[in-house]
């Protein structure tokens, strides 16, 4: 019961302080799910992000369900997901009901302008950590660089790139097996 509450509360915090979509949540996930509660490792979060790209639904929600399920099965998945959507339900309902011109209010715009820079700092730190940890030899660097270039400079849908990267991993696995088989 306690774990379910922790899942709900932690994902509530992550939803409450994430501005933007799935990737913007990464710094919060690193802090809460990885460092504080040890619910998942950095590698597992990367796996969930990859699977979240090729499965239906919003990435942030999928990641919450994955982590929740890993910790406490279906009940955990539901608790984490309800946690991540609760802040939206409350905040949007209030804004939609009361302040229809919310995004035009000057003070809101100034605050959001500052938050945007704050998100840049958090993402800069998050991606720095990820690259230092995840890109460690020539094959991983090649996949990393190719995925970045194709994602940034072409309009190939991300889920296609995920499938390509998975196929590359599979091919690398087969080649390694052959080498070991020959030796």
């Amino acid at each position: 019961m306690n774990v379910l509450w922790d899942l709900y509360a932690a994902w509530f915090r992550m939803g409450l302080f994430t501005f933007g979509g799935g990737y913007a949540m990464l710094p919060m996930i690193q802090k809460e799910a990885i460092e504080k509660y040890h619910w998942a490792t950095e590698d597992e979060i990367m796996d969930y992000y990859a699977l979240g790209q090729v499965t239906p639904g919003i990435i942030a929600v999928n990641t919450a369900t994955f982590v929740g399920y890993k910790v406490k099965g279906v009940a955990g998945g539901i608790a984490a997901t309800l946690g991540v959507i609760s802040p939206s339900l409350v905040i949007i309902t209030i804004i939609a009901g009361l302040i229809t011109n919310f995004s035009d209010i000057p003070i809101v715009q100034h605050a959001l302008g500052g938050i945007q820079i704050g998100v840049c700092v958090l993402l800069f730190e998050a991606i720095r950590k990820l690259i230092l940890k995840g890109v460690k030899d020539i094959p991983t660097f090649v996949i990393f660089a190719a995925a970045f270039a194709l994602n940034y400079f072409t309009s190939i849908p991300t889920f296609v790139l995920v499938i390509l990267a998975g196929a590359t991993g599979y091919a690398m696995f087969l080649m390694k097996g052959q080498k070991e088989g020959n030796a």
Binding site: Q53, I143, F144, A147, F148, N151, A165, F173
Partner: peptide
């Protein structure tokens, strides 16, 4: 084999995130 597939996926996800970060 599953670990092999994921070893290809992880650096790719790093690349996607870097691409989003640079745009921002």
């Amino acid at each position: 084999v599953v670990q092999g597939i994921f070893s290809g996926l992880r650096p790719a996800v790093c690349g996607f995130i870097l691409s989003a970060v640079i745009s921002i």
